[in-house]
Amino acid sequence: MRELMYREAVQEALDEEMARDENVFVIGEDVGVIGGNFKCTTGLLEKYGDLRCKDSPISEAGIVGLGVGAAITGCRPVVELMFADFLMVAMDQICNQAAKITYMSGGQVKVPLVIRMPLGGGRSSAAQHSQSLHAWVAHCPGLKVVLPATAGEAKGLLKTAIRDNNPVIFFEHKMLYTVKFGDVPDKDEDFRIPFGKARQVTEGSDVTVVATSIMAVKAEKAAATLAKEGISVETIDPRTIVPLDTEAIIRSVKKTGRLLIVDEGHASFGISGEIALRILPEIFYDLEAPIERLGTADTPLPFSPALEFPLIPDEKSIAAKIREMARPGGKTA
């Protein structure tokens, strides 16, 4: 195992896949000369040339559409959107085109396209650069939706995404880019993490916490804190929400009888409600308490850290919620 920053892992996955398959190319705003706004594409322009690491105009719909056209004619494009918020600018090409071409062609046409983008708050970027929009695309049949929580996951899942024959929306968390993780295997061209297979982050017996993206990192820290208090938390990182590994979640909840879902998207109409209801028939009689969830408050994200940070679940609020659930009445020992 090696220690890498999350963004280095993204870069390494792109580099390896571009070296492996000359039909893989990267296009996006600022991906070339400066190596990406979040430095995920450094060195690729020098190594693979302008056509395979393309600085694009600021034309999100255009570049996603270009990716769709290239994907259906033999390439494996990786389109970078600088912020997940810009997804909406390209929504027609993502949801009406990429997601539906295979279906509308009766399976004649495959769309091996990856669209990468950073989601999440925490950088005082305000309401148009901080959103977590994975539920928006997860709602649209025909798209796979990936949320890596660590450097190792970013690398293994991105390599899987690039080799997948379907459109994949790949959400990186912008607060993780410079975080180091020690979970990246030694260089191996074929290291990949399959979609639809959750990772057990911590093993425990009192409460199950399903946490996506950076929330898996925060939940892991909360679990460590709670372990000292004698509360045993099982943390599960689904890694992909389409497809979703419901089995892993069901198995864990059958053991603990308690489930908390933590996701940075707004709680309302988000994926926590979906996960809960999808597994409910399987776990109803195993539950010892209502399923709970934590998400970002239902307001646009404000600019000031004084206003922004309290709206997003963190290690402390996750730990507090777990305590409440593990010890009904909210009393700590």
Binding site: V68, G69, I72
Partner: peptide, 10 residues
């Protein structure tokens, strides 16, 4: 239109 341009890029 962008899909056609993507085919040309390809």
């Amino acid at each position: 239109i962008p899909i056609a341009v993507g085919a040309a890029y390809s």
